[in-house]
Amino acid sequence: SPEVQIAILTEQINNLNEHLRVHKKDHHSRRGLLKMVGKRRRLLAYLRNKDVARYREIVEKLG
């Protein structure tokens, strides 16, 4: 489901952010981070168009 995919991506994004705080010059990982953020944004847009209630619920849960 989109909610699960968004939750997994959010966790991976948070982990990668911590990694990049330590390894500032790791541009390869930064590119992966940007791809993940874009994918999460697309999934959220899809969910917002399909079911606003589910969209609001996941945004509330994940912050």
Rank of each mutant, 00 (worst) to 15 (best):
A53E: 15
H23I: 03
V37Q: 07
V22M: 10
E3V: 06
N15Q: 13
E18I: 08
V37N: 03
M36Y: 06
K50N: 12
R21N: 06
N14G: 04
K24A: 10
R30Y: 10
A53P: 05
H23A: 05
I58E: 03
V22R: 10
P2G: 03
H23L: 03
K25W: 13
D51E: 04
Y46M: 12
V52P: 15
I6M: 02
Y46V: 11
L62N: 02
K25T: 12
I8N: 07
E60G: 07
L47F: 02
V22C: 14
L34W: 12
E60F: 06
R21E: 05
A45W: 10
V22N: 11
A7Q: 10
K25A: 11
K61R: 08
G32Y: 15
H28D: 13
L44A: 00
E57D: 08
M36L: 15
E18D: 08
I58A: 04
N15R: 14
E11I: 12
I6N: 00
G38C: 15
L47V: 05
H19D: 03
E18M: 09
H19K: 06
L33Y: 09
I6P: 00
Q5E: 10
R31P: 03
R41H: 08
H19Q: 06
G32Q: 15
T10F: 03
R21G: 04
L47K: 00
L62G: 02
K25Q: 11
N14S: 05
H27K: 11
K61Y: 09
N17Q: 14
G63W: 15
L34T: 06
R42E: 09
N17H: 13
L34V: 08
N17P: 01
Q12W: 12
L62F: 06
Y55K: 01
N49M: 13
A7V: 09
K35P: 01
R30V: 09
K25R: 10
Q5N: 05
K25D: 14
R48G: 02
K61H: 09
N49D: 10
R21T: 05
G38L: 15
Y55E: 01
N15L: 13
R40S: 02
V52H: 11
D26W: 03
D51I: 04
E3Y: 05
R54M: 09
R42M: 09
R41V: 05
Q12V: 07
S29Q: 05
L9T: 01
T10I: 13
Q5G: 03
L43Q: 01
Y46N: 09
A53T: 11
R30C: 14
N14A: 07
R31Q: 10
G32K: 15
I58H: 01
K25E: 14
G38S: 13
K61F: 09
Q12S: 06
L62Y: 06
I6L: 04
N17D: 05
P2L: 15
S29M: 11
L43M: 04
L33M: 08
R48Q: 06
R56S: 06
R30F: 10
D51F: 03
L47S: 00
R41P: 00
V59C: 13
L33T: 01
G32F: 14
I13R: 00
N14L: 09
L20P: 01
G63A: 14
L47G: 00
E57I: 06
K39L: 14
G32M: 15
L43R: 00
N15T: 12
I58Y: 04
Y55M: 02
V4N: 11
L20V: 04
K39C: 11
R21K: 12
K35M: 10
N49C: 14
A7G: 06
K50Y: 14
M36S: 04
G63I: 15
E60T: 08
R31W: 06
D51L: 04
R31Y: 08
K35F: 09
V37G: 01
L62V: 04
H23D: 05
R31C: 11
L44K: 00
L44S: 00
K61S: 12
V4L: 11
Q5V: 10
K50P: 01
I6Y: 02
E3C: 07
G32V: 15
K61I: 10
N17A: 14
A53K: 13
V52W: 14
R21L: 07
K61Q: 10
N17V: 15
R41D: 08
V4A: 13
L44T: 00
I13Q: 01
I58D: 00
V52M: 13
H23T: 04
G32R: 15
I13P: 00
H27R: 09
L43E: 01
L62E: 01
L16D: 01
L16N: 01
H28S: 14
Y46H: 10
L43G: 00
